[in-house]
């Protein structure tokens, strides 16, 4: 079923994930005041980046689809949105789990948390519209438009929530991270992004196969009608 390239990709992703887990739990030190819960951080941050990558991929492919009408771009957009939503869900669940220990509360009105929440809501709506609308041209256009509106909204939401309030630990920008932790973060990034790429490519493959089947269905129906017509009126010449 799977082509060689994609299965190699999957093997690589699995190895990357396993070794990242090894580095995170075996090599990186336990954080002094938060304890072991800080180990969420490595996959949390990488997944957030992967989620936004998925959303931007979806937006780019959607613009291309609206301009050129290429169905393959639509398949790519759908893959980006679905995998993005997957990682975004993880970020939204692991964030509060970490915050419970680190900040003493499940949820704070923290800018990046709120931004991710809004982005997730928009793309959840995207996925829901996809499934309600079915495989029609109008649904494809609606979803492309939603992706564009949603991604265009992200900078504005970011600006508004930043201006409103802010207290996320700015770990990466201030260099407040030890060398071992940095190695673990790099490993987690590599793992999450190879997992992301594998899932997106797999989803694209499935989507392309579905497109192909649909095209063949139309072909078969047209041919069937053709034969029926000829059988009913033998005088009709072959076109």
């Amino acid at each position: 079923m799977m082509s060689d390239k994609l299965s190699w990709m999957a093997v690589f992703a699995s190895l990357a994930v396993l070794s990242a887990l090894g580095v995170v739990f075996g090599y990186a030190p336990v954080e002094a005041s938060m304890g072991i819960v800080q180990k969420i951080f490595y996959f949390h941050v990488s997944s957030a980046l992967a989620a936004y990558t998925g959303f931007f991929l979806c937006c780019g492919a959607s613009i291309y689809y609206l301009l050129k009408g290429d169905r393959r771009a639509d398949v790519v957009a759908r893959a980006g949105a679905e995998v993005g939503v997957l990682f975004c869900t993880f970020v939204l669940i692991s964030g509060p789990l970490w915050a419970r220990k680190a900040w003493g509360t499940w949820w704070t009105g923290e800018p990046r948390l709120m931004l991710t929440m809004v982005a997730a809501l928009i793309f959840y709506a995207y996925v829901v519209v996809r499934s309600i609308g079915g495989r029609t041209e109008i649904t494809r256009r609606i979803c492309a438009a939603l992706a564009i509106l949603g991604v265009a909204d992200i900078p504005l939401v970011h600006f508004a929530v930043q201006k409103w309030r802010g207290n996320h630990p700015r770990v990466l920008r201030n260099g407040g991270i030890s060398d071992e932790m940095e190695v673990a973060l790099t490993a987690a990034m590599l793992a999450v992004f190879s997992l992301f790429a594998t899932l997106v490519l797999l989803r694209i493959r499935v989507g392309m196969a579905e497109e192909k089947v649909e095209r063949l269905h139309r072909l078969a129906t047209a041919r069937g009608n053709d034969i029926e017509d000829r059988r009913r009126s033998p005088l009709l010449e072959n076109p």
């Binding site: 030190p29 336990v30 954080e31 938060m34 819960v37 800080q38 201030n174 260099g175």
Partner: peptide, 18 residues
């Protein structure tokens, strides 16, 4: 801001089951 690695053998406070 930032994370501090625990010193080896240092007891890590654990009021919430992290």
């Amino acid at each position: 801001e930032g994370f501090v690695p625990a010193a080896p053998g240092q007891a890590v406070e654990d009021s919430v089951p992290g």
